[in-house]
């Protein structure tokens, strides 16, 4: 079926409301996971990229895209997963990082930290609650592969840090 009623921009707008299943305050568009929309005479192809290769949310995101587009009258949707260019936390918008911080997750620092160094000794992470830099790494891996566990020595609260990637 040809989607003559929807432009590429319309589809982008519809999809921009889909939340990241693991951090619902930000959308897949703000995260930089929504890469492109291609309209062909066969329908619509939505191109997405995973944050991590094993990201378990990809299946859910694909279902959400198809469902939301169907509700908006767009059929014949194909979701394509691409690996290149590799996703980086630098694609997250400033707004997304601020929303993430308010949600209680310390947002990623710049990907310039992509060096072969020991993780714990080379990162100064701010507490998302009190902004203190007196924080300590508890574990390099948190509730998901993309986050690390920290604790704040000022307000004594534990928090998660979205690792730069």
């Amino acid at each position: 079926m040809v989607n003559t009623l929807h432009t590429k921009q319309d589809i982008f707008n519809i999809l921009s409301f889909i939340p990241d299943p693991e951090i619902p305050v930000v959308s897949i568009k703000e995260m930089g996971m929504l890469r492109d929309v291609v309209l062909t005479d066969k329908g619509c192809e939505v191109i997405i990229t995973p944050t991590y290769t094993g990201c378990p949310a990809m299946g859910m995101i694909e279902d959400d895209i198809k469902r939301v587009l169907k509700e908006n009258g767009v059929s014949s949707v194909n979701v394509k997963l691409v690996y290149a260019p590799a996703w980086t936390t630098d694609w997250m918008t400033t707004e997304a990082k601020e929303k993430m911080r308010k949600y209680g997750i310390a947002p990623p620092t710049s990907s310039a930290c992509n060096k072969l160094t020991s993780f714990s000794k080379n990162n100064l992470i701010k507490c998302p609650r009190c902004n203190s830099t007196h924080t300590e790494l508890i574990s390099m891996f948190g509730s998901t592969a993309c986050k690390a566990l920290y604790k704040c020595d000022s307000c004594k609260e534990p928090f998660e840090y979205f690792k730069c990637h």
Binding site: Y83, A86, W87, F119
Partner: peptide, 21 residues
């Protein structure tokens, strides 16, 4: 192979820091 490797290397960096620590 190049695309999968580019993603893998970002993840492996953390695995390596973990096992080195």
């Amino acid at each position: 192979i190049a695309a999968i490797s580019a993603k893998a290397v970002k993840e492996v960096r953390y695995h390596l820091a973990h096992s080195s620590d």
